[in-house]
Design a protein around this nucleic acid. Structure first.
Length: 197
DNA sequence: GTAGGGATACACT
DNA sequence: GTGTATCCCTACT
């Protein structure tokens, strides 16, 4: 399969909310020994730094959140609720924390492999949530820090078809700063996570 | 509606 | 070093 061009550093080196909105429609590509999987980003959430109580970076850098303060265009992967990994994309300049959580993908390649990893058949069940998409793409804590901008990387973000209409809502699954409209999704997509808006 | 699961951060000793 | 509250969730009932 022919792959689109990789997003450059300048794409990530901007305010997090801007990057979050523009990540919609871009494509995430993953290559492993098992094969290729890819999906189009249809739902994201922005997490800021010191100003954002819902962010892992809120209390400054820790061993886990350190990467959010560093080089942009890398993956921040964390382990959650005992069984799932979630993938974020680091934004902003070095020293300023920011990341965009990838919440849902529209599968575009490697359907069989995604189904095998997920143990689910329906396309809507493969990547419709942050834990689900990490599982479908084979993303684990070992991918924490992976550079998404390098051709030789097995995890990359590339160009894609931009959405017709973008929806905005508060973030889900958080207990602090629940009023901020930091969730962006492709309106009408059957592949977004099934949470109330 | 809720069980499950493990890493993380921080308050303590 | 130990205790414990929390968590950017999923799958099942």
């Amino acid at each position: 399969m022919r792959k689109p061009g990789i997003l450059p550093r300048s794409f990530y080196h901007r305010p997090t909310l801007e990057v979050a909105r523009e990540l919609l429609g871009k494509t995430l590509w993953r290559e492993t020994e098992e094969g290729l999987t890819a999906g189009r980003i249809v739902e994201v959430e922005a997490y800021l730094g010191q100003d954002d109580p819902a962010s892992h970076a809120y209390r400054g850098p820790t061993p886990r959140s350190r990467i959010m303060f560093e080089d942009c265009g890398r993956a921040y992967v964390y382990f959650s609720y005992g069984s799932h990994c979630c993938m974020n994309v680091v934004t902003e300049r070095h020293g300023t924390a920011g990341a965009v959580l990838l919440r849902a993908l529209e599968p575009i390649a490697g359907f069989a492999l995604m189904r095998r990893r997920r143990g689910r058949d329906r396309r809507e069940d493969l990547c419709s949530g942050p834990g689900k998409l990490a599982q479908a793409m084979g993303i684990t804590l070992r991918d924490n820090g992976a550079d998404l901008k390098l051709t030789r990387s097995t995890l990359t973000i590339r160009e894609g078809r931009i959405p017709l209409e973008i929806g905005i809502s508060p973030r889900v699954g958080i207990s602090k700063a629940t009023d901020r409209p930091f969730r962006f999704f492709e309106r009408g997509s059957p592949y977004v996570s099934r949470v109330r808006v």
